[in-house]
Design a binder for these strands. Sequence first.
RNA 1: CGCGGGAUAGAGCAGUUGGCAGCUCGCCAGGCCCAUAACCUGGAGGUCGUCGGUUCGAGUCCGACUCCCGCAACCA
Length: 480
Amino acid sequence: MLDQEYFYITTTLPYINSEPHIGFAAEIIKADVIARYQRQQGRKVFFNTGTDEHGLKVYQKAQAEGLSVAQYCDKYSAKFRPLKEKLNLSYDKFIRTTDSFHKAAAQEFWRRCLANGDIYKKTYEVKYCVGCEMEKTDSELNNGFCPLHPGQKLEIIAEENYFFRFSKYQKQLLKLYEQNDFVIPASRLKEINTFVANGLKDFSISRQRDKMPHGVPVPDDDSQVMYVWFDALVNYISTLGWPEDESNFLKYWPAIQVCGKDNLRPQAAMWQAMLMSAGIKPSKNVLVFGFLTNNGEKISKSSGNTVDPYILVDEYGSDALRYYLLAEIPTFTDGDYSEDKFIARYNADLANGLGNLVARVSNLLEKNEIETNLKPDLSIADIKETVALFKKSMEIYHFNEALHIIWKKISDLNESLSAQAPWKLNDKAEVANILIPLAQSILNLSYLLEPFMPLTSFNIQSQFQNKQIKKGEALFPRLN
RNA sequence: CGCGGGAUAGAGCAGUUGGCAGCUCGCCAGGCCCAUAACCUGGAGGUCGUCGGUUCGAGUCCGACUCCCGCAACCA
């Protein structure tokens, strides 16, 4: 039956230089759907997330807020933890890259890459804007000048850093990409393949400690700390107990990794090369999701149009937010959020669709005092086609389609109920013959819905497994 | 010739092995009255960005073009 007993999925770790935003919420919700679906299939799932806490920006923000780096990290990491309850996530582990076991793992990882001849020292030239008191990369510059200080010439500072021999792994990476589902969707695989085929430059993996002390110490060199990327990526294996707990690690690795499209290179190329260097199998798949816009506009901290997932949950509930993000936006493409769209979706699908159907059927069962004894059963004929189509969509992570298939069935059930009009009948047995199969189908749908809307699924399942099904409270009161 | 994405009904969007063009909202006309002013039926509305090609057949594959949008590595 099951091709594999163990299943491991991980999100990227959000960097704690700001509050949680809707984009990361969308990413982790999709990962949660996959994790819950795999558990339903009977697999032993390990679902990882956490926070990425090293590096210059955190160091500077801590100073700006007048906190020690440790205090700052504790404060901001703690802002991400409530996502679990707020979004009703089922992750198993919340790792912090400042956890001591992680730092030790990152150092061991470094040693293995070093032993393999892939880490070397080189002088690294950085452009430094005195006005910002910050290093600048070329992509941040306008015609070679800092956009904030266009009159000032940038200083070139030479710094001795460790580099990772990324270029060495070009061929192996291209070979890896021959596994044509390594990166999903295919367009992203093509993108990374072209990028790697065009040639790789070794990248810097350390910083001078006297300038930026907030990082994992480089083994056997007190003057340097690891560059944040290098240590952060190792979390995907340190969270499994690598290197100490080899048996647990081997059970779960390799991972399905999910990330936003900005993370394609780090996840699908840099990290994979690092794994190769350390002698560890590459990830199983990298799923690359799109970005969200707010009312058609790019979401950015500077323009102040970020969307706070906590506010939406408090107002509409976690399942409604999950439903919107999963149903309205195709898994791998960019999508848009706006309150108008959210309310329109909510009313059309949740209030008028699912909620109203559940209310109709449960009310009729209660009024007619019809007793039932139901359990979810996906083998019955009525639901078979829906289940088959649903599974097909789930296997390729097309969650919007999977939900569309469920909602098609909801629509069919509404139609069937209207056509049979049991409220016109007097014979109780006849009424029961109409309602019980409908109730059974609702129960089955609620089972399919569990990975997407766990609370609603649970509510419907407990409601419809009672002997005397009762109407109860509205699942999704209509919004005006 | 840097890389990639998009262009489908008034709006917002689905449509991955090529096979009578779909969904939601909105609009019009009926029905029902169990239900969350909900539900059901019917209707108007599209030359699927443009041009060409492959094919019995293309929104779907190939080529060219136009217009929008991201990204352009050590900033995670």
